[in-house]
């Protein structure tokens, strides 16, 4: 199969589109007019992230204990990953603040272990990694369109000057 790399124009500058695409999976492709693909990407990336969270529980998102998995993979799932990490950290802070031995000193979630934890972590990390791939794809398409426009601009000016002379 031949893979295409179509340049796509965007009304917004690429850093803004990249940031939006990073925060909300699929939104970057929506902004450059690839609506159907945006829906598939959003559904798949959110689906993978939520599936990971569902099987491993909130314990699979651990920005303190699993910095590498969170920092390299999971955080790139965008606002949802940051929100879940915030909830998890709030639960940990609440448990740590409670007096030792009290029922509140135990976190509200159940720690996950073994294969379920590994797979849940992997699902969420791959969802983040795939969203990063989508962000890079959006940046590539917008910058390719910009380069194409710059290449065409001098030649069209040249043709215009030839016509007037």
């Amino acid at each position: 199969m031949n893979h295409d790399f179509q340049a796509q124009k965007s009304a917004l500058p690429w850093p803004v589109v990249a940031l939006v695409a990073w925060l909300v999976p699929g939104l970057g492709h929506l902004l450059i007019g690839r609506r159907d693909r945006a829906v598939i990407l959003a559904a798949t990336i959110y689906g993978m992230f939520i599936a990971g969270l569902f099987m491993g529980g909130i314990d699979v998102i651990d920005p303190v204990g699993d910095r590498l998995w969170f920092g390299v993979g999971q955080v790139h799932a965008g606002a949802l990953a940051i929100g879940v990490a915030g909830v998890r950290m709030a639960m940990d802070v609440k448990a740590e603040a409670a007096p030792y031995g009290s029922p509140e000193a135990v976190p509200e979630y159940q720690p996950s272990v073994g294969r379920v934890n590994e797979l849940g972590t992997l699902y969420c990390a791959l969802a983040g990694g795939l969203n990063l791939l989508c962000v890079l794809d959006v940046i590539g398409r917008i910058t390719a369109a910009e380069e194409q426009r710059l290449r065409e601009a001098p030649s069209s000016r040249g043709r215009a000057s030839e016509a007037t002379s």
Binding site: R37, G56, I58, E108, S112, Y123, L130, D137
Partner: peptide
Amino acid sequence: FLDPIDLHGHWLWLIAPLLMGVALVYKTL
């Protein structure tokens, strides 16, 4: 979403949807 599911005996089956998700995103792009 708070507690993990007890799927320790079935974990191998969970690899297939993961692979299909990766393949779907790549091919959609």
